[in-house]
Design a protein around this nucleic acid. Structure first.
Ligand code: DGT
Ligand code: MG
Ligand code: MG
Length: 579
DNA sequence: GCCGTTTTCGGCCCGACTGTTTTCAGTCG
């Protein structure tokens, strides 16, 4: 079964082959389509079934026909023909760093070099020396590229996040008023995986900054370094692009460096149509700069409202901004609680209080801590006795300004959860297929846990979709965030399409450096979630979960909330205040 | 190959860095 990733790779291969043929524009068109497929929330086959392939940005008549053929037969005649024309090794050479279609084609046509191994041999034998444009340094670069391992894979955002923040903080230490440093690129957009770290600095002292960064302790290598940008490789192979611009250009540069590429291109094209020009230094009317200091100014100068970084993927956000209808996305300040707190088995009472202090800092009204039900071993969560005691005290006696403490249980079946009468709320762990049940659940069920990103395999994907539908139908929210136990932004998008609600993780129970909170929020925002799409933006009062602005909520959600409420009547007071 | 509050044809973002060049091509962000 062909996954979206397979299809995207196929289009990228076509793009490279067309590039090697010397085609113009077509390669970029295929890459644009591939990028679109990268972040699709559903399998391509679903779009094909519904006849919606052409609604995907960058997919038109020709690519849609090719995808249909590929989905049906698992093969693509067009690609097969291209591949008989151009050896596979030439594409491999083209994908080496610093080598593009022009150079790879020259190796192939002029030197009959058709693989990275052959390239190494040709270099060692001196066969390239003296050729036009291939000087000593260039050939040294080729040797380096041909000897290197294939370009490192993209890494999960949670891995790159702390390192990027540390680097940004270390740069900020030496900045003064008016100077700034921000993480940009795919990290700022909160993509699930990132190819590198992009750091923007607003300062007039670029060489000073580059010197300090290059001398950082975990810098392995400086790949390039000019007046305004530098690329370094950190320990572990993580690549970092640092760009420094004048503070007057910081806003324009932040727009540029945050991307995405497709967002930038559309923005710049729009400006052009208006007789303006956008680059990383500002917005220009002729020679004159009309914006550049802030992102707001840049968007405003081309008639757009500001667009949150997580939305900048050219998926229609620019049209919304043109009519001032960008949705107000969920923010940190909207979060009123977090039900998915966990304490490690050796957590001390102080650890608990540290978590509560963090919850207070986040201005949470309530926190839930999972203490019952089935953990990985099928046992009740273990905690030291004195921590249990502190937990019981904090739950019974809420201190002023502190979050209410609720105890929860995580269960693998509705029956086992309903049987546990000691918990304040219940979490259903996604295992196998979702339960088949009448439309009313017992009281206190709040969350579905352990539901990861959509699996690629078709029957597993079906089951995953069934869980989302189950959660949406019964008013259970699903956790969004990094890792294999939470929805990624595409999964979140799918849940919202089904009219479900998300649970954003605050990380109150983690160390301060743990990036799970901001990433969880970022994923939700990438799915264009508003506060009303996130269950834990609702306050829990003595009686019921209330939500201040339900005005634009859809009927499905209202009715499921009603169902859940009616189900609570006559049950224990503890569970009642949660339903 | 895609796309359209200027287009169904004719455009397709804009600039930095490197190596090699004596004015620019190629690659990358
Ligand atoms: N205008 C313009 N901007 C670009 C282009 N390529 C990249 N950029 C901008 C937008 C990108 O978000 C930003 C950083 O480039 P990267 O290659 O690191 O891409 P990004 O961080 O988006 O994704 P990544 O996870 O690194 O693959 O630079 C381009 O061709 N044109
Ligand atoms: Mg990047
Ligand atoms: Mg980059």
């Amino acid at each position: 079964m062909a996954s979206n990733a397979d299809a995207a790779e196929l289009l990228r291969l076509i793009a490279d082959l067309l590039d090697l043929r010397g085609e113009r524009f077509k390669p970029e068109a295929y890459r644009r389509a591939a990028r679109s497929i990268d972040t699709l929330p559903e399998p391509l086959a679903k779009y094909a079934e519904r006849g919606e392939l052409r609604a995907i940005p960058g997919i038109g008549e020709a690519i849609s026909a090719k995808l249909t053929e590929y989905l049906k037969t698992g093969r693509l005649g067009y690609l097969d023909r291209l591949q008989t024309e151009i050896p596979a090794g030439v594409v491999q050479i083209m994908r080496l760093p610093g080598i593009g279609p022009k150079t790879a084609r020259r190796f192939w046509v002029e030197f009959h070099v058709e693989s990275p191994a052959a390239l190494r041999k040709a270099i060692d034998a001196g066969r390239l020396s003296g050729a036009r444009g291939f000087g000593e340094r260039r050939i040294a670069q080729f040797r380096e590229a041909a000897g290197a391992r294939p370009a490192g894979a993209r890494i999960p955002i949670a891995e790159a996040w702390p390192r990027a923040q540390r680097l940004a903080a270390s740069i900020r230490q030496h900045l003064t008023g008016g100077e700034r440093a921000e993480v940009a690129g795919s990290l700022r957009r909160c993509r699930e995986t990132v190819g590198d770290v992009d750091l923007l600095v607003g300062s007039r002292r670029s060489s000073e900054i580059f010197d300090r960064v290059a001398n950082g302790s975990d810098v392995l290598e400086v790949l390039l370094s000019g007046d305004t940008k530098m690329t370094i490789v950190l320990e572990g192979g993580l690549q970092v692009d640092v760009r420094v611009v004048d503070p007057d250009s910081f806003g324009a540069a932040l727009v540029y460096f945050t991307g995405s590429k497709d967002h930038n291109v559309r923005l710049r094209t729009l400006a052009k149509d208006l007789g303006l020009k956008i680059n990383e230094y500002g917005v220009y009317r002729g020679e004159r700069v009309i914006a550049g200091r802030s992102e707001y100014d840049v968007y405003d100068a081309v008639g757009l409202s500001w667009i949150p970084p997580e939305m900048r993927e050219d998926r229609g956000e620019i049209d919304l901004a043109a009519t001032d209808s960008v949705p107000t996305l969920v923010e940190l300040a909207d979060l009123k609680g977090d039900l998915h707190g966990r304490l490690s088995p050796d957590a001390s009472p102080d650890d608990l209080d540290r978590a509560l202090a963090e919850a207070r800092r986040l201005r949470l009204d309530y926190v839930g801590i999972l203490v019952h039900g089935t953990d990985d071993d099928g046992h009740r969560a273990a905690l030291p006795a004195e921590t249990w005691q502190r937990l019981a005290v904090r739950r019974e006696r809420r201190r002023p300004g502190e979050a209410a403490v609720l105890l929860g249980g995580e269960f693998t079946s509705l029956a086992s959860g309903d049987a546990d009468r000691e918990v304040d709320f219940r979490v259903l762990r996604a295992q196998g297929s979702p339960p088949v049940t009448a439309d009313c659940l017992g009281p206190g069920w709040r969350l579905v846990s352990h539901l990861g990103p959509a699996p690629a395999e078709a029957t597993e994907r079906e089951r995953w979709g069934a869980w989302l539908a189950f959660a949406a139908a019964h008013g259970l929210s699903v956790e969004v965030g990094p890792g294999p136990e939470r929805l990624d932004s595409e999964g979140a998008r799918e849940l919202l399409r089904l009219r479900g609600t998300l649970h954003v993780v605050t990380g109150f129970d983690r160390t301060p450096e743990d990036p799970i909170g901001p990433i969880s929020l970022g994923f939700a925002r990438r799915a264009w979630a508003r506060a009303t799409d996130v269950q834990n933006t609702r306050r829990v009062t003595g009686g019921e979960a209330s939500s201040p602005d339900r005005g634009d909520q859809d009927a499905t959600m209202r009715s499921s909330a009603r169902r859940a409420r009616s189900a609570t009547s006559g049950r224990t007071s503890i569970t009642k205040r949660f339903s």
